[in-house]
């Protein structure tokens, strides 16, 4: 964990990094809609190309992007199996006598599903986690959700909590390491024994960690009070987000892509999802 930036943020200078985080959140939402608009082969080819374009625009190494798919490999595999075996269609691929029946439609469905999930993960990753720092993301969400304040949803408080959590994750990680070392030095053993024994071995780490986290929270609360924190009312901000023309253009491009896909569904060719 040490020396590694928290989260998936990949520091680089790219057109994607420079877009306003609020615009990126909007674009991510639009892009998710796009992936679900796709219905036929032409659409999916366009979608795949768009994902490749996004990766190029963000200057993120492809290897890193593909690695982010690893945790969902199981889901991808599961959906494809379900689609291949459960879809009933007209073109039977397996011999009549087989108990298991696989249809061409099932294969197509599986392929599209896999494509959809992959592009979805890559797209949101590029828009949000890879090119936007967690703190910028928090800011963006606070701005975008601020209309909800009118119906008494404490948007500012949530954003503040997020900020503090992000601020303290490295501190607490370091602390965990320190406590682990201290208990190891007293002969604590975290690696051998039954599951129950190992769970019990965590107590000497968790108790001090909680105690310290609570102490930190108390300290932080006093420190914030001392610095006149009294909720989001009447607060100004040092770094105000400003939309630039390019941000609107970017949003429009994604929206236009969605419209394009919509028309491809009607005029495109190849297998079409029902």
């Amino acid at each position: 964990m040490k020396g590694v930036a928290f989260g998936q943020y990949y520091p680089a200078v790219s057109p994607m990094h420079r877009i306003d985080p609020r615009a990126k959140v909007i674009m991510a939402v639009l892009y998710i809609v796009c992936t679900f608009l796709c219905k036929n082969l032409t659409g999916f080819i366009a979608l795949l190309l768009s994902a490749i374009l996004l990766v190029t625009l963000s200057h993120i190494p492809l290897k890193l992007v593909l690695r982010s798919l690893r945790p969902i490999l199981f889901i991808i595999a599961f959906t494809s199996v379900i689609n291949i075996f459960m879809t009933k269609g007209e073109t039977l691929l397996t011999p009549e006598s087989w108990k298991i029946k696989i249809y061409a439609e099932g294969i197509w469905n599986a392929l599209f599903m896999v494509l959809r999930i992959t592009v979805l993960i890559i797209g949101t990753g590029i828009f949000l986690t890879y090119t936007t720092t967690p703190i910028a993301l928090t800011d963006a969400l606070e701005y975008l959700l601020s209309p909800l304040k009118k119906i008494k949803i404490p948007v500012h408080d949530f954003a503040m909590m997020m900020t503090i959590a992000l601020r303290f994750i490295p501190t607490l990680t370091e602390e965990t390491e320190k406590i682990m070392n201290a208990q190891k030095a007293r002969g604590a053993d975290f690696t051998t024994g039954s599951l129950l024994k190992r769970a019990k071995a965590l107590i000497p780490i968790l108790v001090p960690l909680f105690v310290s986290a609570f102490n930190r929270a108390f300290d932080l609360a006093s420190a914030m009070e001392c610095r006149c924190y009294h909720g989001g009312e009447g607060r100004t901000r040092l770094n105000v987000l400003h939309y630039r023309a390019v941000d609107f253009v970017a949003i429009l491009l994604v929206a236009a892509f969605g419209v394009g896909l919509f028309f491809l569904n009607r005029y495109g060719f190849g297998y079409t999802l029902s």
Binding site: E175, K178, I179, A182, K184, A185, R186, D189, P208, V211
Partner: peptide, 20 residues
């Protein structure tokens, strides 16, 4: 390795954090 920990006792900085 464990025996070594017992032979060489280590008291870390601010060791009161280790109390549980």
């Amino acid at each position: 390795r464990r025996e070594l920990c017992f032979r060489v006792g280590l008291v870390m900085q601010y060791p009161e954090y280790q109390l549980f």
